[in-house]
Write a protein that binds this DNA or RNA. Structure first.
Length: 261
DNA sequence: ATGACGGAAGTTTTCCGA
């Protein structure tokens, strides 16, 4: 089965691209971030017409996350339990596992805070958010061993995930506390699906709109799919689909896709 | 040089993203 994540940077603007991509890729589940719309504006009819159901948690202007799946998402949970946050950044749901009879997969879709800069209050919020997410996921993994965490992590885990590691050294998205937090998630019992396979050098999932970032491949790998240990051996591929980044009016992020056999 | 580009809110400019 195919699981994917895509920060669409406004679902209203990107909806035609999302519908085209669903038709072309036929993922079993697609996690979306940065919807930038309220729930009452969520384009449910268009998505259902494309053969998908949806769980979503939106807000005005910023943030907003959704899980689209071919079957009805079950046991939907919004946010991080025990972490009050008006920013809509996390949604979880159970989706049918098409290749296994031992129960559904638990999908957690997350839009990690950006942090702005390491001397910003938003960076402190990011670190608190990361700690809360980690604590919460420790329990979720016990409850749902077949768990996948997909989303825009706003963390480039290693220097090889950064087009210019010298310029980005100790900057937000690359700082040691953020990378420590990423490793902390791995330490709970996750595997970075992308790094389980040979990949081209300079593989990124986000490129700045400015300075011809995409054409010059000035990017970062900040969108990730972490799969729990019991699922890891079923993962047969993981890739970044750069095609949508080449369209007119693209998101600044490209989708990341994982295949579970 | 802290710019650029893109989206949203909403109005001629600001905030935010990464």
């Amino acid at each position: 089965m195919i699981l994917a994540t895509w920060n669409v940077n406004s679902l209203m603007v990107r909806l035609p691209q999302v519908l085209d991509w669903l038709a072309a890729q036929r993922p079993d589940a697609l996690c979306l971030q940065e919807l930038k719309l309220e729930d009452k504006a969520f384009p449910l009819a268009e998505i259902e017409a494309a053969g998908y159901r949806a769980a979503f948690s939106g807000q005005k202007t910023y943030n907003g996350v959704a899980i689209l799946s071919r079957g009805e998402p079950q046991d939907i949970q919004r946010g991080i339990a025990g972490f009050d946050d008006p920013q809509q950044r996390v949604i979880s749901a159970s989706v049918a596992d098409t290749n296994n009879s031992s129960g559904p997969l638990r999908v957690v879709c997350a839009y990690f805070p950006n942090g702005q800069s390491i001397d910003s209050d938003k960076y402190q919020y990011k670190l608190r958010w990361l700690a809360a997410l980690t604590d919460w996921l420790r329990g979720e993994l016990e409850k749902y061993p077949r768990l996948v965490l997909l989303g825009d992590y706003n963390i480039a885990p290693e220097d090889r995930d950064v087009h210019d590691p010298v310029a980005w050294k100790d900057q937000v998205l690359c700082s040691a506390p953020e990378r420590d937090a990423f490793r902390g998630l791995i330490g709970l019992g996750f595997h970075d699906a992308f790094r389980r396979f040979d990949q081209a050098e300079k593989s990124y999932s986000w490129w700045d709109y400015r300075m011809m970032g995409f054409r010059r491949n000035m990017g970062l790998r900040i969108d990730h799919i972490l799969i729990s240990t019991v699922l890891a051996d079923r993962c047969t591929a993981c890739s970044i689909d750069k095609a949508p980044r080449k369209l007119e009016r693209p998101s600044d992020h490209a989708p990341v896709i994982a295949v579970l056999e």
